[in-house]
């Protein structure tokens, strides 16, 4: 039976983490489910755990310079209802699970879960979010795509806690978000697609596209995005078929209990087409 801790303060949490490597459990919406066990028995955690949802120091969201800071213990429902959060991220959060789960779950928990099907995580990739990691001896931050290294894998060290997600403020001309879930609500995603486009004087100054559940990790290509910079309508329309082909090569989904590889690929490409149409509209 795994040992479990309930730190009273953030400092204590950091210390327990350093001394025992106990895995932090915030909302429990992932870990309490993954390690669930029959009624009347304890969850079957394979490692020591600590429950951090009571730590007030880990909650809250605010603007700091050109960044939105979402502290790690902030519940999804708070993010969903906050006016200072980018509307696409709010929408992605609103489409996650159901109200009761959003009252428990956290964005940081989602990131640490490192599922390629995390919808809000897909939006964070597109927004260029960074994560903040804290141990007793140091604090470091890194882009989310460096933090997540594979399905269920991150570079979080045994003595570190994720303490915040930092999202650069982003202004775009138009945005695109579409989640295809297993049903209309309370659904896990079959795939998701997030796009942002910024146009100045009829030319693309910024284009971002992130795709969820189409590979082992969220797909975002800085290279393909940068090729679009500076294009006008004509250039983009000419480039579009080739760009679509290059994205198609990055889309490598699998069959599982929720959908098929074929459906995921086809639908993702259809959504990319819709996003490209939005770009053309913005350019004209």
């Amino acid at each position: 039976m795994a040992v479990s801790y309930v730190p009273a303060t953030f400092e204590e949490a950091v210390r327990i983490r350093r001394e025992t490597g106990a895995v932090p459990v915030a909302g429990g919406t992932d870990l309490m489910v993954r390690y669930r066990s029959p009624a009347g028995t304890l969850p079957d955690f394979p490692w020591p755990v600590m429950f951090i949802s009571g730590l007030k120091e880990m909650k809250g969201l605010f603007l700091e310079g050109a960044e939105l800071v979402i502290k790690a213990g902030t519940e999804l429902a708070v993010i969903e209802h906050s006016e200072i959060v980018h509307p696409v991220l709010r929408e992605a959060v609103r489409q996650m699970a159901a109200p009761a789960l959003r009252n428990l779950g956290t964005l940081s928990g989602n990131i640490c879960n490192a599922s390629p099907a995390g919808d809000a995580v897909c939006v964070l990739y597109a927004l260029g979010a960074e994560v903040e990691l804290t141990s007793s001896s140091r604090m470091r931050r890194m882009p989310i795509e460096h933090f997540i290294t594979g399905p269920g894998r991150t570079v979080l060290k045994d003595d570190e806690l994720m303490t915040a997600v930092r999202i650069p403020l982003h202004s775009d001309s138009a945005s695109f978000y579409r989640k295809v879930g297993t049903r209309k609500a309370n659904a896990l995603s079959k795939l998701s697609c997030t796009g942002f486009i910024t146009v100045t004087e009829n030319r693309i100054v910024d284009m971002r596209l992130a795709l969820g559940a189409v590979g082992p990790m969220v797909v975002r290509s800085a290279e393909l995005e940068s090729q679009c910079i500076g294009m006008d309508l004509n250039q983009f329309s000419n480039f579009k078929p080739d760009l679509r082909k290059q994205y198609a090569e990055l889309v490598t989904p699998i069959d599982d209990q929720r959908s098929t590889a074929e459906y995921r690929k086809e639908t993702t490409l259809n959504l990319i087409d819709e996003f490209f149409m939005l770009i053309e509209k913005e350019l004209s």
Partner: peptide, 27 residues
């Protein structure tokens, strides 16, 4: 429409309420 229940090697592949999809209020 929603309730896909597949057998893989003799076991039901969708074996939780997260994967065996019944209608919610929104469907």
């Amino acid at each position: 429409s929603l309730e896909k229940l597949e057998v893989k090697n003799g076991a039901f592949l969708q074996n939780t309420f997260a994967d065996y999809i019944i209608p919610t209020t929104m469907d």
